[in-house]
Simulated assay, not measured.
Amino acid sequence: MKLKRATFRHIEAEIYAYNDTIKAIEELRADIILAGRQGELGAAVGGGGYITSKVERRATKLADSLLLREMERITKAIAEVYAKSKEEVRRVVWVKYGLAIDWQPPQELAQKLQNRNRFDLTARDMAEILAVDESTFHRYRTGFVYGIAEKLGWY
């Protein structure tokens, strides 16, 4: 079965935005946890007649945040697939998407890409920088995206 083009592009957009998403998750958590810190931490009678504290309500809000959970699920899938990837795949992912999780690209590869904008490079250019065949570049890139889709249950 083949991924729909829109799904493939969505996963690619998530890969490009991985570092920004991690920052957004941290900020969202902090906003939820720190919300209401101005008031006292006490107890209040809830709608069902039971006593709930503001801390409990914040914790529930944090746990129930659908946006937060989906962002965490996607970033976790990307990180897991990345962690299982071979060195060659990591190189392709770094050149294509600029993503390096607990990995440093080789110095010579970083120098080749230093004064170039990855968004202006064609697949052929990226394959030349990586010293691989263009079909190999596509195979690694597609395999990485499909691995993420599989982890997310989108494939």
Rank of each mutant, 00 (worst) to 15 (best):
P106N: 04
W103G: 04
P106S: 08
Q111L: 14
K84N: 12
R124P: 00
W103I: 02
V92D: 06
Q114Y: 12
V93I: 15
D102Y: 06
F119D: 13
Y97L: 01
E80D: 15
G98V: 08
L113I: 12
E87P: 01
T122R: 05
A100K: 08
R118P: 09
L121W: 10
D102S: 09
K96G: 00
Q104T: 14
V93E: 03
K84Q: 14
Q114V: 07
W94Q: 05
W94N: 10
A79W: 05
Q111S: 11
Y97E: 04
A100N: 12
W94T: 01
A123V: 05
E128F: 07
A79R: 14
A79M: 06
P106M: 06
E80M: 09
K96V: 09
R116T: 06
R91G: 13
E87K: 12
Q104A: 12
A127F: 04
L113S: 01
S85T: 01
L99A: 06
R91W: 00
Y97R: 05
L121D: 08
P106K: 11
R116S: 05
L109K: 02
K86I: 05
E80N: 14
N117F: 05
G98K: 01
L109P: 04
K86Q: 13
A127K: 02
L99S: 08
I78N: 07
A83S: 14
D102F: 07
R116A: 10
Q104S: 14
R90E: 09
L99I: 12
R91P: 00
L109W: 03
N117K: 11
A127W: 04
W103Q: 04
R90P: 01
A79D: 12
V89P: 01
A100I: 05
Q114F: 09
K112M: 10
E80A: 15
Q107K: 14
I78P: 08
V95L: 03
V81Q: 10
L130V: 08
R124Q: 13
A131E: 15
E80F: 06
E80V: 12
P105H: 06
R118K: 11
T122N: 03
V89H: 01
W94F: 15
D120V: 06
P106E: 13
Q107W: 10
V93Q: 04
W103L: 06
L99F: 07
T122P: 03
I101K: 07
I129V: 14
Q104C: 00
Y97C: 11
Q107G: 00
N117W: 01
G98D: 04
S85Y: 04
A123N: 15
V92M: 08
Q114T: 05
R90K: 15
A127R: 05
L130H: 06
Q114K: 15
S85N: 08
L121Y: 07
T122K: 08
E80Q: 12
A131G: 08
A100T: 03
Q104P: 00
L130C: 02
V89K: 03
Q107C: 00
L99E: 10
V81W: 06
A123I: 00
A83K: 14
N117V: 01
V132P: 01
I101V: 13
E108P: 10
T122W: 02
K84R: 14
A131L: 09
F119N: 14
A131D: 15
F119K: 13
E108M: 11
A131C: 08
R124C: 00
V92H: 03
A77W: 10
L130A: 03
E108W: 10
W103P: 10
V93S: 04
